[in-house]
Amino acid sequence: MTTRRHLAGLLAAAATVPLGLPLARPALAQPATLPEGPIRLVVPFPPGGPNDLVARVLAQKLGPLLDRTVVIENRSGAGGVVGTDNVAKSEPDGRSMVLTSAGAIAISPPLGAPMSFDVEKDLAPITLVALMPELLAVNPKLPVKTLAELIDHAKKNPGKLNFASSGNGSMPHLAGESLRAAAGIDIVHVPYRGAAPAVTDLMAGQVQMMFADIPALLAQVQAGALRPIAIGSKERTPLLPEVPTMAEAGLPGVEADNWYGLVAPAGTPKPILDRLHDAAVRALNDPELRKAYAEQGARPVGNTPEEFRAFIASETKRWGEIGRRADVRMD
């Protein structure tokens, strides 16, 4: 079953669940009362992308757990900053959340992107929802099949290999910069406005290599139009079990997982945040959700707000250092 067909099935099933009849769960001591009306879950990217699909499956499970309709609202722009800013400035009453990303709250701030909100002051972390491994793939005409061969080829052809990304300062861009520094190779960055045109040019041979979220490359890899080289995460993905991690391929210092996390406006009362967190974690442990995420290559997490806040700080430091060393300038 394809991801979209499975997602459609989940959404259809959701329509049959009465809003007043939550899924069975242990009783909570004096649960916080949410305001009446729907809850907005802002997706700061266009419909159809990995972030959007992850959010829609999550929303389908959150509705019954919260006894509310959870409505997806796509507000794209500036690599996720626009949609995240919208929620940062919303009323802190539990009716607005955003499934934000690494780029919006851990990469853009340390690299000097124009920001209209402060991550620490204006956002309340709820939980890290999912990790999305970055896949390194090459045009199949490139005479390499392994990471070692790619590095060797790049060293023999300095400045002649181009690596694409979905934009300056994006996760794929910084993953490529991390590879460049760790391998000591001279490769040229070619930014695009989004993953789709970058993948198109990669298949055409206009660029030779690219990191991207697995869903952006999977169909082309499975069709033989692109050749997978390595996975940026700590673990292999069941979608491409034969593809080694970067560490297994010889570069343990290169790790790249995109990620999506649930946040609310700062000032949201703690009892409400606790209820949103409880529902999110329960949703992320739902077998149907985990199956749908696995079909996209995503790994559900569901940690505490404190753990998520510490994770954001760690990621901000790591990607900020990589970006500054490479003199990355945000668009």
Results as ranks from 00 to 15, higher is better:
S178Q: 13
T2V: 01
Q296S: 05
A230G: 00
A12T: 13
K160V: 06
L19D: 09
P133G: 05
A12F: 13
G302D: 13
A124P: 10
L99Y: 00
N74R: 02
V207I: 10
I107M: 15
G253Q: 14
L7V: 02
A216H: 03
R56M: 05
K145N: 15
L218H: 07
W259R: 01
P228C: 13
L174V: 01
V281F: 03
V328F: 05
P46F: 12
R68E: 08
D67K: 15
R5Y: 12
L19R: 15
V82L: 07
D331W: 08
Q296V: 09
E307I: 06
A310W: 02
A14G: 07
V144E: 10
K234E: 07
F311K: 02
M97V: 07
S108I: 11
V70S: 05
A29C: 12
P125T: 15
V57P: 08
W319N: 04
M97W: 09
L131D: 11
I105L: 08
N157F: 12
E120A: 14
P300D: 13
G167I: 12
V188M: 07
L10R: 10
M210L: 10
E248F: 11
Y260P: 02
P271S: 01
L19C: 08
L284H: 13
A181W: 08
G194E: 03
K156N: 09
A124K: 15
P244Y: 11
T33G: 01
A106R: 08
P238G: 03
G112W: 12
A230W: 00
